[in-house]
Amino acid sequence: MLGKLIKHEIKATGRILFPLYLILLLLSVVNRVLTSIEVFSGPLNTIKVFMLSVYGLSVFASFVVTFIVMILRFYKNLMSDEGYLMFTIPVKPNQLINSKIIVSFMLNILSIIVVAASLFILLGTSKNIEMIKQIWDYIYINLKLSFEDKYAVLLAELIFMIILSLIQQILLIYVSIAVGHLFTGHKVLGSFAAYIAINTVGQILVTIIISILAVINGTSFEALDSIPQLLFPFSIVVSIIFCILFYLGTNYIFNRKLNLE
């Protein structure tokens, strides 16, 4: 059933997002062509500037619209009238949540890949590629110098952290919408309030825990070595805990407190 839910999820979100991604890629091709030919001079140059601005806007739109579609889809499909359908098909509420997290995660990653690909189309000259290579080498050498043999761990932790924080953000939005749903009347307002409240409480908790740990250990987090050994693992653990709490919270509300209007 999860597979079917994912299939329908992709269909429902892809109908908006895939055309948008396609437009972005097309615009980068157009701009690549425009920048490579030299016929635009004087007033005609505005065409070039205009097309580049449109491209810049569509990069921005790809991220923002992906994010908005993700939020609206969750709200509309589960908390509005469509919820009457979704919560009466024979699947467990947690499967609904799973399908939505998986597809939201995939779409966010896809939007990053599409933007990267479009930048490559636009700027991927041999000169630029060489430059990126040099920058990467520079970062790589410096990482190795600073962290010695731990640089690989550091990189792995960093990637894991980015993935986790994306999932945490998605789940935070989901649980906020679910909590907002508990309010009678102002459900959307309630969701915003829940988002701010959960976020604030979470940050205060993390700050308190860090302070306590720092006092107990007597170490500061300033030492370079502590980043891969302490700071990143700590962030990862905290992130995992938040993800679990947000997930369980959403699932609890869907299972026990559902009250569609």
Partner: peptide
């Protein structure tokens, strides 16, 4: 839920769907 067929008083089908897509949806899940 596998054996209960429910018609709510709401219009609960996503409005961007075609009627045939709604039929596919039901066919997929029931």
């Amino acid at each position: 839920k596998k054996i209960v067929s429910y018609l709510p008083e709401k219009t609960y089908l996503p409005d961007w769907m075609k009627v045939s897509e709604a039929i596919n949806f039901f066919n997929d899940f029931y």
